[in-house]
Computed example of a mutant assay.
Amino acid sequence: MKNLILATSALAITAGLALTAGMAMADGHGKTIRLGTEGAYPPYNFLNDAGEVDGFERAVGDELCARAELTCEWVTNEWDSIIPNLVSGNYDVIIAGMSITDERDEVIDFSDPYTLPDPSSYLAMGELDLSGAVIAAQAGTIQASHIASMEGATLVEFATPEETVAAVKNGEADAVLADKSFLAPIAEEDGDLQLLEQDELLGGGIGLGIRESDGELREKFNTAIQSMKADGSLNALIAKWLPEAAQF
Rank of each mutant, 00 (worst) to 15 (best):
T37S: 13
E73M: 11
N48C: 10
L86K: 15
L35Y: 06
F110C: 01
G89H: 11
Y91S: 11
I135P: 08
V134A: 11
T115R: 03
T76C: 11
R58L: 05
P113H: 06
V93D: 00
V60G: 09
L123S: 03
H29T: 14
Y91A: 04
D129P: 08
G61T: 08
G51M: 06
T115V: 06
I100T: 03
L70P: 05
E52P: 04
M125D: 00
L123I: 08
W79Y: 15
G22R: 08
L123G: 07
L35Q: 08
A124S: 15
E52Y: 10
M98K: 00
D92C: 10
I100H: 01
E38D: 00
A26M: 06
N85E: 10
V53G: 09
C72L: 10
G61H: 06
L128T: 11
E38K: 01
L128C: 12
K31E: 14
A133F: 13
V134F: 07
D118G: 03
G36L: 02
V87S: 08
T37N: 07
E106W: 01
C72Y: 06
T32N: 08
E38V: 05
Y114S: 02
G39Q: 05
P117V: 12
L64S: 00
R104L: 07
V134Y: 01
L128E: 14
G97R: 02
N77T: 12
S131H: 14
T32S: 04
V53Q: 10
E63Q: 13
A59K: 13
C65E: 05
C72P: 13
T101K: 05
I95M: 15
M23Y: 13
W74L: 12
I108H: 00
T76K: 10
T20S: 13
Y91F: 15
I95S: 06
G28M: 11
V87F: 09
R58P: 00
R34I: 08
D102T: 15
P84A: 09
A40D: 10
C65M: 13
